[in-house]
Amino acid sequence: MSNQMNRLLGDTPGRTIVKLLVVSLIVGFVMAVFDLRPFDIFYGLRDFILDLWHRGFDALGAVGDYLLAGAIIVIPAFILLRLFSFRRS
């Protein structure tokens, strides 16, 4: 069991805990220097995803406008061409 735990953690549990504590202390210090809070990062990521989501739908709205404008010309032209080709047959 101990060998499997060491392989999973990459080292002994005690050494892994010490490494995680040291890295957490360094990261916490750097975040304090730059005045970052964990929730600021979380909210920033959430806002980024929401902005991307909303801008994506805006882009789809513009594509829909182009599609509708093109369809106003293409669909009647298609119907007229089909009617004229049907009369020739």
Rank of each mutant, 00 (worst) to 15 (best):
M1F: 08
S2E: 08
N3H: 14
N3L: 10
M5H: 00
N6F: 08
R7I: 12
L8I: 04
L9M: 15
D11I: 05
D11T: 00
D11C: 04
T16V: 09
I17K: 08
V18S: 12
V18M: 11
L20K: 12
V22M: 14
S24W: 09
I26Q: 07
I26G: 04
G28T: 00
G28F: 08
F29M: 01
F34C: 02
F34G: 11
L36E: 12
R37W: 14
P38R: 02
P38A: 09
P38S: 06
F39S: 15
D40T: 15
D40P: 01
F42R: 08
G44S: 08
L45A: 13
L45Q: 09
D47N: 07
H54R: 12
F57T: 10
D58C: 07
D58Q: 02
A59K: 08
A59G: 07
L60T: 00
L60P: 00
G61V: 00
G61R: 00
A62F: 09
A62K: 04
V63T: 04
D65N: 02
Y66F: 10
Y66H: 08
Y66A: 00
Y66R: 05
L67Q: 11
G70E: 10
G70R: 01
I72C: 02
I73E: 06
V74C: 14
V74M: 15
I75P: 00
P76T: 03
F78K: 06
F78H: 01
F78I: 06
F78N: 11
I79M: 08
R88A: 13
R88C: 05
S89P: 05
